[in-house]
Design a protein around this nucleic acid. Structure first.
Lengths: 352, 352
DNA sequence: CTTTAGCACTCAGGCGAAGGGAGTGCTAAA
DNA sequence: TTTAGCACTCCCTTCGCCTGAGTGCTAAAG
């Protein structure tokens, strides 16, 4: 897209003006606020050209111009300057990180809340990219004659546990036996390999003992499965309503429902190389997001896991500012939970 | 409130008609659909009387009548018949219970989702009423030379764990020592009693050993604290928008924001004796709920814990149907997780 | 060739009048 | 005590008008 310097200046002014006011920008306002040293007629000509190039749009003939998604894209890629966080902004993010976020598992839930309060946009958070976790170790603790706790340590350094109750008695010897067996045969196996191993044991283990093995191993598989699944969590959905483009229920409702059920059908092209990724309007895959934009940032947790946190809003968003805030926040998270640091985790209550 | 039989019949007809249509009910429609064997003029007279008693209201002079909150209250207390769940309704609830809800900790989150999908209303869920939990038992598992896992079993049969990393080495003997000490001194103590106990040990334990004790005990206290705190979880907030009374943003937005932030300032008079509790309009404490109603049901988990699950909607709700569904659902939960049954729990990842 | 001033044209949104319609309260008769 | 009849109220929708911001085009000026 080759634009003259003046056209760039005008496009940028339109985008920035529109981001602020949410009103179509006319040639006259641009002369007044845009810092352009030409007359409104000249600007009108240039705007007509920008519209021909598909970067600006006119809601109706007698209105000013608003940026098209393509216009935003050009703005984001070429014209936008990095937003420097003010001391206050940085401070409030730091505060939030320090006071609100303690444990790794709560990161997803809490970070979303924090960001949604900070930005007044709906947020989403997800974790992704755990490659092939395995069970590193099993521990079994006898609680009473009929129940025991299984504690599982995975290769990704997360610990999970579950309380099992039986309808028959069991003693320490049996538990130790079971533990040894599990640790020799069912560690360092991926989710796919476990069933085969289980099959091998089915043949030469007694009925009752095998039932126990299967009980625990099934649980182990659940843990691994859960570790691999990507859950999307959302927060602050009603923040949408604060923005003028969602004042009409027709526009707000489908999107809100989509966000609210995102966790069910969650799918999202997460940022790979770059830290911050911006999806503008129709660049989104989901139909419900075609009129909205997404800004998201990646952060690292533990060894080979990463998370994504982002905001959803109208295409008219302050991309520069939000991107800056998100990436600052994500950096903070990476610092807290990333490789160098101690792995963190969440509490767990047992299952049966 | 003494009403003639006919007045009761009319009130009931108005409520039920209005619940269905969301339109003010006029005398004529009542003659047609209400099964009353009198003329519209008679009904008009009776309605005027019901309005004088504060049970009906007129949005404006030339409109029909709608029930006032007091009218709904009379309806709920005296006129409403128990709604019999249809086979399908019961079936779909059973399905949801079986397929969606497995582990106790997910109950709050999942049950809310399920109910909100089922009823198309926003839902909330909370657990409450755990009286003075204590730690029943500590288990310590050495992971490697510098890290170990603490597994805590509480008096409420929940298990939590956390991974601790140290910056010095530790061996099995020390771990066993620590474990014995914890189990003798720091079990069966309430949250208030623990600090005193900790103080007692501060004097006659060596520096390093005491640091370890404090580490674990602090964690134990966190667990107890968390167990006592009541978190409110909400789901399906955007469902609000499906109902005509929330078509205007002015009415929907404050309520949605309130629900979305309910977890922060959560407070709710939970049902005590009764299983189902209904709060109509101004009966609610929170200002944002004064125009809405809440229907909630109690369920039991574990020994002395209970949970509450409920829906939020306009005062014009099908109280009978929703109460029936909620209590059926709550009964199902109690059956799954209640006293008689095996305690269930959630997985847990460790903290540091 | 580019920029600017001038001007006619377009069209969304606000305002008010008019009309329709649902429902009421009152009165008088049954 | 109930019912029929009727005048009255007032919400809501529709329609037309007007206003004003902003445009595109044309012609003159740089």
């Amino acid at each position: 897209m080759d634009l003259s310097e003046r056209q760039k200046k005008i496009l940028r002014a339109v985008v920035e003006q529109y981001i602020q006011t949410a009103e179509p920008v006319g040639s006259k306002t641009l002369v007044e606020h845009g810092g352009l040293e030409v007359s409104s007629a000249t600007i009108r000509n240039e705007m007509a050209e920008l519209e021909a190039k598909g970067l600006l749009e006119q809601p109706h003939t007698s209105a000013g111009r608003i940026p098209s998604p393509a216009g935003y894209r050009v703005y984001v890629n070429e014209l936008m300057e990095d937003h420097r966080l003010s001391m206050q902004e940085a401070q409030s993010i730091n505060d939030a990180l320090e006071t609100k976020i303690h444990e790794m598992d709560q990161v997803m839930t809490e970070a979303g809340k924090v960001i949604s309060q900070l930005t007044r946009y709906p947020t989403f958070a997800l974790t992704a990219g755990r490659s092939q976790a395995t069970i590193a170790r099993y521990d079994l603790l006898l609680v009473d004659k009929e129940s025991f706790i299984v504690v599982i340590l995975t290769s990704t350094q997360t610990v999970k546990n579950k309380l099992f109750r039986l309808n028959h008695e069991i003693d320490e010897t049996q538990i130790q036996l079971l533990k040894t067996l599990l640790n020799t045969s069912f560690t360092e196996k991926t989710l796919e390999e476990i069933p085969q191993e289980l099959l091998r044991h089915a043949s030469h283990a007694e009925g009752e003992a095998f039932a126990l093995i299967r009980l625990v191993v099934t649980y182990a598989m659940t843990v691994l499965k859960e570790l691999e699944s990507n859950v999307v969590r959302t927060a602050g959905i009603p923040n949408l309503l604060a923005h003028p483009e969602y004042q009409s229920l027709d526009s707000a409702e489908p999107l809100m429902n989509f966000l609210s059920e995102w966790s069910e059908n969650g799918n999202l092209p997460a940022p790979q190389d770059e830290t911050v990724k911006i999806l503008i309007g129709p660049e989104n895959v989901a139909e419900e997001l075609k009129n909205s934009s997404i800004i998201m940032a990646r952060y690292d947790i533990g060894d080979n896991m990463q998370g994504v946190i982002g905001v959803v809003g109208p295409t008219r968003m302050d991309y520069a500012k939000l991107a800056a805030r998100l990436s600052y926040f994500a950096e903070g998270l990476s610092r807290m939970f990333g490789k160098g640091e101690l792995p963190q985790g969440r509490d767990g209550e047992p299952e049966t």
